[in-house]
Design a protein around this nucleic acid. Structure first.
Lengths: 263, 263
DNA sequence: TCCTGTGAACGATTTCACAGCC
DNA sequence: GGCTGTGAAATCGTTCACAGGA
């Protein structure tokens, strides 16, 4: 997750903690599912389970929004759906552009949950002239020469960058110059933006690396915790842990640099 | 970004804070770029800028790993690349399976940064028999009947789920039963997994909703902060803020439920 | 003199536990 | 009696500011 910028000094009274904001969509999704099953009310315990958090956290989160909910009973599902939607700004619709229609951009364009909750794909933009006019997810791709005009004509304030890393910063600069103030970045680069522009980043390889870190720990821990079936990596035991040499006096806890570097 | 489970009671001496772990891949990427440009050393200030964090945080992060770095000079790039790689478990290679080869799965399979840092796509798996045998990113898709055998034969411990929401939990269960202990989930569902299995979640629509929240604030704030060019949504002013009625006595700070719900 | 490494202060977030209301 | 709403405590994360080595 990681936001590109710290959002206001948090000194405002009406300020909802960032951690809470990040969970509201989770609650909203769980509530929407309940709503579709015509469940009228739900307790903090049940809703928390559906959203994958604990109930104390959920109640605290909701307390920042106001006192929805009835003691001894729970929360009215429809009412809460509306209040959270409003809080998140989903009662209006947000035109979004996707820049970079490669594999990923196409996947995003086709993503259903996109349109369903307040977001509308206003345009798909790609730098490749050969893509221009080709429909993806029913929307014709437009050439990036048109970027500024598209942003301005549609009043777009949210942009999604799905270009290769090298193109991301220039695209970002153009989006910002044209009036975009929120960016969701899928390219593996740090974007720099002026004050007042929000950037959120989604990065596959970072997520995998975090998983690898924990995975490694599981293997080398001494605990060999809960590894069902055949899970040992095919060759070379994972990690094999800190068996060695607290060598000289300074430097890190384990292992010096080997002769051969891992590419 | 939400981990499915809290990682150990944090009472271990060698424990690196989760927040630090999440930033190590960022540092690694910045360092790799420096390494490719044959930069020999870097200061905390420079590296922090390249990674998009502040230097105090970076130094604190590195202090959990050990005392790499030289006072008055900075960090040796190659040395640090190696140490971080090792800490993250990237000096071994992790076979990964991707389940669900739709638009997104294909995008992931084609993602370059995937293979580049310690991860190897061991197999692509899809439930559609028509996909079987078709190569995606040079790798033939296999039918999901083979899932257990693939996991076991390749010693896979990391799985990526890119299926529709409905299929995600069953796929997850099979992965876990077959020996997978880390899962990266792109489906918009909360997965439930047994103790000892890590889940990380990447959710486009949640990221967009978080952006919408801040975007809405920008518009209604009274500040009309830093909005260059034409940024007003085409119709209906964004938010138009809490102008109303602190009505009765209880309940939330603004707005009651309207007659028409936003779908 | 420069820049790392780190205690200590600070701030944010989570958890606890229980008062208050239905 | 059951469940929300919330102060207070505990934990986690960030920032400050400076001691200390190269």
């Amino acid at each position: 997750m990681a936001t590109g910028r710290n959002h206001r000094p948090a000194t405002r009274s009406r300020g909802i903690p960032e951690a809470t904001v990040a969970r509201l969509p989770l609650y909203l999704r769980a509530l929407t599912a309940l709503s579709e099953r015509s469940v009228p009310t739900v307790s903090s315990e049940e809703l928390a389970a559906a959203a994958g958090v604990n109930s104390a956290k959920l109640r605290k989160d909701f307390s920042y929004l106001g006192s929805y909910g009835t003691r001894g009973v729970g929360y009215d599902v429809e009412y809460l759906v509306y209040q959270i939607s409003r809080e998140l700004g989903l009662t209006q619709d947000w035109p979004v552009v996707i820049v970079g229609i490669g594999n990923l951009g196409a996947a995003l364009a086709n993503y259903g949950g996109f349109a369903s909750r307040g977001f509308r794909v206003a345009a798909l933009i790609d730098a490749d002239p050969a893509m221009a006019g080709k429909p993806v997810a029913g929307i014709p791709v437009q050439h990036s020469d048109e970027l500024e005009k598209i942003i301005s004509d549609n009043g777009v304030s949210i942009g999604v960058i799905a270009t290769p890393a090298g193109a991301a910063q220039p695209v970002c600069d153009r989006l910002v110059a044209a009036g975009v103030t929120s960016i969701l970045n899928f390219a593996p680069t740090v974007l720099s933006v002026p004050e007042g522009v929000d950037v959120r980043k989604v990065d596959l390889s970072i997520e995998l690396q975090i998983l690898a870190f924990h995975e490694q720990r599981k293997a080398g821990d001494g605990g060999e915790a809960a590894a069902p079936a055949a899970s040992a990596p095919a060759d070379g035991g994972a990690g094999t842990a800190s068996a060695g040499a607290e060598s000289a006096g300074r430097k890190g806890p384990d292992g010096d640099m080997p002769a051969v570097m891992p590419a």
